[in-house]
């Protein structure tokens, strides 16, 4: 019977180890500069928000934050629309060339973004979209859309065909069926898509590093990278910036853990 307790103890140690980098970062961000001489695992004796204020205003993180938020929200919303529309056609509408299209979308699951950033940069530039949020958004959408087309497809396949047939007989157009019948029951897929695309968009560095070179357009990832480059020794500022970047996704995760877990296992290929 001791076995259970040993197991729980070992897991507890692992959990603490896993959580400690985040907790230590939070500690540091809240410490007055005078307390930095203490070991990093000392909690702040008096809590200060001065580093957050400094990073948020002088460090430009407020702008980075809202740029990131804008891109991520648009990414998530548009992804839900375009991926569900495409998946609807793949599942409920008969047309020629469906198999070819399926294979085309399948290819998208295999393309590592890292490998194609050089031509992607050229294409975004040739459309005049360099240094625009629009450019980043379309690139994000393109590189992840196949994951979500398959996610919606696998969800739609489980919807009884009779539901679609019945609506057709009542004289509804395909678009009406999509909006009024299918999408309302696809909410789990919608939530998963929104969370996952928001997360990927929020966290990405490489595309933003290439496509956004003007400071006022930058996102948190690029902002933090530059801050790290110029303010290498500003430990409190860096940890505040890290916490600012982490907090929204951590809150989302804590609220929607089940959805995240399901989505991450399904969308894991990307």
């Amino acid at each position: 019977m001791y076995g259970r307790w040993i197991l729980l103890f070992v897991l507890g140690v692992i959990a603490v180890l896993m959580a400690s980098p985040l907790i230590l970062t939070l500690f540091t961000s809240l410490k007055p500069t005078t307390e930095l001489v203490n070991p990093a695992w000392y909690p702040p004796l008096s809590v200060t928000f001065e580093h957050y204020i400094r990073v948020w205003t002088d460090g430009g993180f407020s702008r980075y934050f809202f740029n990131t938020l804008l891109i991520s929200v648009i990414d998530a919303v548009v992804m839900i629309v375009i991926a569900s529309l495409a998946a609807y056609a793949m599942v409920f509408i008969d047309f020629r060339g469906k198999l070819a299209l399926q294979i085309l979308f399948l290819v998208g699951l295999m393309i590592p973004v890292t490998a194609i950033v050089l031509p992607l940069f050229q294409i975004v530039r040739s459309f005049g979209l360099l240094n625009t949020h629009f450019g980043v958004i379309v690139a994000d959408l393109a590189l992840a859309v196949s994951v979500f087309v398959f996610m919606f497809t696998s969800y739609f396949v489980g919807v009884p065909k009779a539901l679609h047939e019945a609506a057709r007989i009542d004289g509804a157009t395909e678009f009406q069926i999509y909006r009024r019948v299918i999408m309302p029951i696809a909410m789990p897929a919608v939530v998963t898509t929104a969370l996952l695309e928001f997360l990927w968009s929020w966290n990405d560095l490489l595309l933003r590093l290439l496509l956004l070179t003007q400071d006022e357009m930058r996102t948190l990832s690029v902002g933090l990278l530059n801050f790290q480059g110029t303010m290498t020794r500003d430990v409190t500022g860096l940890s505040s910036g890290t916490v600012i970047m982490a907090i929204p996704v951590v809150i989302l995760f804590l609220f929607f853990q089940r959805h995240f877990v399901r989505g991450m296992t399904a969308g894991a290929v990307k």
Binding site: A15, N203, L220, L225, V250, Q257
Partner: peptide
């Protein structure tokens, strides 16, 4: 505690 780091940005 174990899964939370998965959502943290590689930059962070």
């Amino acid at each position: 505690c174990i899964v939370l780091p998965v959502v943290i940005s590689p930059m962070a």
